[in-house]
Design a protein around this nucleic acid. Structure first.
Lengths: 346, 346
DNA sequence: CTGAAAGCGCTTACAG
DNA sequence: CTGAAAGCGCTTACAG
């Protein structure tokens, strides 16, 4: 169907070795010969077969990216960052989703073997052993927000603990003490870290974390929506809701509005991740800014350091800080009405 | 590094041909032999090299997906749908972004050659010739919302014309006649179709399209935001804004709120695509629902029909209808205040 | 500067 | 049921 290197060699009247040389400009070829070959390549629209090339060179010019899901702005941003970094090196991306399922992880990793020069895995739920057992030893691997701390691999973690702690302090400073959190599920490392940060901040102010205000979501809009409908039914309603990601915050906002409440005057809401749409919501969403796009870039660049042997030796463990993006969805608790309440109570 | 078929054959005391047979269960192998080989494969954690396999079998078990961008919910949904469909067949996705740039398209398509069994291309801007010149002849291709109508390839188009027409009729029925549109750029086929539908609907009601109410955006939130800031400065402000995608509608909403106007009481806003977040905005966004996820699924399934030779012969041209998702961002124009206006004018 | 040949890791007729 | 051998399309020492 397609022409191959033999067709080119024949038509140019040279050996395939010479054609290969001009393809890779590996060795000196007489410029006259080179020109002729180039002309034939052009004429035949010849493109080297990457399978054959990959087979012998053990280089695929592709990076594997395995994410829990391909759905939503968060993963979309990771992919975008990774794709940018990869394209800058004339590499390409092979993406796959695992849905936090070990069988799917195994299948994806198996598929990638021999097809990629390095692998980036983000897997906040599947546990260490299963993941490690399936990770190839033959290519560089970067673990992104994974539950493992195996020193054999490079890792990148975002500071979920610090981010949640900072956001919680912000809420406390605004006067909120009854704060409901929407978590991302028990087994999710990111959710765990964020919960840890939340509780720490509380304890630092001598507030005992109230487990009945910790609600289990799953990082989706729907779970935010449904959970907050429950929350709003509480007799002693929280004054603020801290969703552990922006998707759940979006669902929360919807539930709150449906109840006829105003944000932030009736109740404050904040999220985590600071996905691109956050600033466009109304009210614009206060969130913990995770440099999502940059996470993708960093992971790819780290992987290239390995591939290009710019880095040898011990694995690196990077820790990415977060910042607060303060917008309009949280406000100082209304001390007036607090006074009133106290007055009523008295 | 990794064990290969020879290692397995040696350890099992058979020829590589026999190992290959159990790998592909192509021919009968004595079950005793099979067991032994399977055991060795397991022990050595042997995985066939896909490059070698692809080279000889001309089958890669991967589908290429080339999109204008990997950014945002729209493309994210396409990818998700495609990935689902592909995983159902134990295939994998190789995604790439073109940024509507012919050089990048060429590079991506070149990379995919030999690495994928079929290609899905979405390219609403780059023109026919360039695209067609780079499309491989050796694997099935599906064109998604492309500017070409080359009968050689299967195509899928969404009904941008019909969707825009329907939405415009809806706005007209609500009493709006001064409707501003935010387009997606001159060279974008989708934008062109939507504009055509918009103008048609107007003409059908004997309204001459007013070019000064057609604003050029580029399908991003930012362009929606900035354009609408201009729009709001108009002396004779439109009563409705029809953004040709939801991202621009989101930007528009932000600009409108910043001006202190209420949606929909002061001004109606609607979008196009109905991305997942649309229903969670406030007010929830009225939009033209494009089955984005399903578009990805359809393209993949079409491609499998070709690969599996379930379909032979002529190319198919699919046309995907849209529906209206009516929510809370548009309302009937306030006839009272119209009367007042008229009263004032009189 | 160029060519003949080996080899990357696999599959598949062709024999037995 | 199984093995020896050719071949997929390329690259790279090894000779000249």
């Amino acid at each position: 169907m397609h022409s191959n290197i033999i067709d080119v060699a024949k038509k140019a009247g040279v050996s395939i070795a010479t054609v290969s040389r001009v393809l890779n400009d590996s060795e000196k070829v007489k410029s006259e010969t080179r020109e002729k070959i180039l002309a034939v390549i052009d004429e035949l629209k010849y493109v080297p077969n990457p399978a054959a090339r990959g087979l012998i060179m053990r280089r695929t010019e592709a990076i594997g990216l395995l994410l829990p899901d391909l759905h939503g702005e968060f993963f979309s941003e990771i992919i975008r960052g990774a794709d940018e970094a990869v394209q800058a090196q004339s590499y390409h991306l092979i993406v796959s989703s695992s849905h936090n399922d070990s069988k799917e992880i195994e299948a994806a990793l198996r598929f990638m073997r021999g097809r990629v020069d390095a692998i980036i895995v983000m897997s906040p739920q599947v546990d260490s052993e299963i993941l490690l057992a399936n990770l190839p030893k033959s290519v560089p691997v970067v673990l992104l927000n994974c539950r493992t701390s195996n020193p054999h691999f490079d890792t990148i973690m975002t500071d979920g603990y610090g981010g949640a702690r900072e956001m919680t302090n912000y809420l406390l400073d605004l006067g909120h003490t009854r704060i409901a959190v929407l978590t991302g599920g028990e087994n999710n490392i990111e959710s765990q870290e964020r919960l840890r940060g939340f509780r720490s901040a509380l304890r630092e102010r001598d507030i005992t974390p109230n487990r009945s205000l910790e609600f289990a979501g799953n990082f989706t809009e729907v779970s935010g929506y449904e959970t907050v409908r429950e929350v709003l039914l509480l007799k002693d309603r929280p004054t603020a809701i801290f969703a552990f990601n922006d998707s759940m915050a979006i669902g929360a906002i919807k539930a709150i509005r449906e109840e006829g409440l105003k944000i932030p005057s009736d109740i404050s809401v904040c999220g985590f991740d600071d996905i691109p749409v956050a600033k466009f919501l109304s009210p614009s969403l206060t969130s913990v800014c995770v440099p999502i796009h940059d996470l993708g870039v960093m992971a790819v660049n780290r992987v290239f350091d390995r591939i290009k042997k710019r880095t040898k030796g011990a694995s690196a463990h990077m820790f990415v800080s977060t910042t607060l993006s303060i917008r309009n969805s949280c406000k100082k608790i209304n001390t007036m009405s607090n006074l009133e309440k106290e007055g009523n109570a008295a």
